[in-house]
Nucleic acid binder design. Structure first.
Lengths: 209, 209, 209, 209
DNA sequence: CATGAATGAGATTTCATTCAT
DNA sequence: TATGAATGAAATCTCATTCAT
């Protein structure tokens, strides 16, 4: 006469299994309720264990946040495209992969886009987050630089600023996809399409004669 | 020695004077230490009064945060350019004004860019914040739409996405200007210049024959 | 162009005048809101002065409560009838005078009846309150003793217990008169009448043959 | 030496056990020190646990007070006599049972008698308290009405006022039994005896010829 | 591995009281 | 005399963390 339909995950599980459960729960709370609601009690409730049990698997809450960050980093790392192809193609792949990532893991990227997580993460977490962000930055700039070298993008443009434009657009697109209040969701491809057209310099407005 | 170079602000001051001091201190803490460190004690330390004195000037911490938000809103409102001129010109003016704003008030915009402040702000603060953000969004889209109408920007491009690009670039530029670790600061005019060139569709890469 | 109709008591008044105002206000608050709401701020609001001004006129809040108690004592003292007349007549006079007192000063007796005020009053206030209560007790017992001596009341009855009966009835009658929820208010004379009939032993029930 | 005669209650106990301990401690403090001294710290000291531990067992202080009130209600409820017997006999039973109750639980009835507890109890507690008091009132009046119907008490007397007399006497008797300063304690039976004689109208004073 | 009880540190807030104006 | 600003002490409550079971 069990009332719960789902098979009620086993009460006792190995630390190996619990750690990712906890890290994911932390991520979910961070994304939906905000850092202020990430308490041991809330975490336990989310996972289905007592709050004190958290500390069997992680030394303290800082370690939990660190683990959550590492999960984000892993997911982000998985979005880097393979090395081949045209530079703008690789940029496009990253752009679309990151947008796709938040369809499956909407909770993840709300964090990644906010460079404010640093403050919830403690010094070590901040360091790792910065490294990850730097990696994105470098990848994007490298793509752009190569695109300039190959004539896909005008070489006269400051590559750093171009990088800002790409990253900024990605951030806002992510926010728009996650936010409940975004007025008009756009297909990721459509977003990239506009950005790529700008970068390629193609769409000069029709200057009527 | 320590004869305190600054004239040691008077112990007693009027509520009129204290309120902005407190709101500004809150802003500074929010920007530098993060929402988690915005406590009455920290606020008092920052202002130079006891923590309990805060509540003589504001009913509770929520009101303090609200006041801080209103300060940001005021500053942001002051960056809208007058109505005349070309659409891209007005956009440029807003872009540069907002970047200039954070030279004087670096603490301010770290908040405005973070759409996560909502969770620290309580429902009323969140409402106001969203209204302000919506206002920016509308202004930018309107400029872009007019720019398309006047042939400054290719009409074929989705204006919503163009808005994302502008806003995203502004966000990253702001973050770069505020962040201690931005590798290569760029002159605001240079940033805008790149963005405007892209929007105008001018800089087609030299396709050498 | 003054908007307030009543002549707005003068801003500055002598301590002589302020002290009773404050004591009365304290009494009113104690009776209507309870001891928990007797704060310096509430007191100031009630009197129409700033909270800090209280301490110009009284050393501290304990002194205010003491003054309030003394006011109650004075009012209670004024209810003792003159010495002449029959013992039960004097008892009746006290009974009715005390009930009448709370028509004019409903706030006063809610305190007097509650022997719990002791705990809000501090040791000195408690001492004085006990003295006042003892005085009532003595007066009532003396009346009853004399009534027994004069054959108005059966001499076989324990005078202490008779005193409890009289005092208890007075307490409940006061509570009933003050309380909002007393189902059926009784005229003071009617209450005393019943009590006196009992004391006189008259109304033996009709024992049907 | 201090080998602590009592077996030093175990540090850890179940919530089940702690809850009544805390409620009782609250009752004791309310009765001896007054509502103003019922703080979490005092409560913790009384029970032998840290103040913050209180909130493991009760949500907040209001709940503690509510539990204390419910304890009083339970004890009071247990004093109602079974339905049989004469009306005055049932009244006598209640009277004696309530007086007996405070021999075992002196702290309890100091609260019940004070209708002022309402203000410390919050709305819900006040409601329950009033219900309990109303129940006593009804029981007493019913007994008296039946006593009149059966000729034990003169039917001419206002039953409401008779009820006040009984309740008042009970209150003062309770106060006398609890108070440290009551000059001459009386056996409960003696008190009731006097009251019953008055009600029965028997003891007309000897009017010597 | 899991938990419930316990705790100390700290956050918000209230309040009596002091002091300069 | 009156006040507004300031303060420290204390109260309630939260939370990460420890520990015995």
């Amino acid at each position: 006469m069990r009332s719960t339909t789902k098979p009620t995950a086993p009460r006792r599980q190995r630390t190996e299994d619990r750690r990712p459960q906890i890290a994911d729960a932390a991520l979910r709370i961070l994304a939906t309720k905000g850092a202020g609601h990430l308490t041991a009690a809330a975490l336990g409730r989310e996972v289905g264990i007592a709050d004190s049990t958290i500390f069997r698997h992680y030394r303290d809450m800082d370690e939990v946040v660190l683990a959550a960050i590492d999960r984000v980093r892993m997911l982000l790392d998985s979005t880097y495209p393979p090395n081949g192809g045209s530079p703008l193609g690789r940029l496009r792949a990253l752009f679309l992969a990151r947008l796709a990532l938040i369809c499956d893991h909407p909770e993840v990227l709300r964090l990644a886009s906010s460079d404010r997580l640093e403050q919830v993460a403690g010094p070590e977490g901040a360091r790792r987050l910065r490294a990850t962000i730097q990696q994105s930055r470098d990848f994007i700039e490298t793509c752009l630089r190569e695109a300039q070298a190959q004539g896909e993008v005008a070489a006269s443009l400051d590559v750093t600023v171009l990088g800002w434009i790409v990253r900024g657009t990605l951030q806002v697109a992510v926010a728009a996809a996650t936010g409940q209040r975004s007025p008009a969701p756009r297909a990721p491809e459509a977003v990239w399409s506009v950005l790529e057209q700008l970068l390629r310099g193609a769409p000069a407005p029709d200057r009527a004669p």
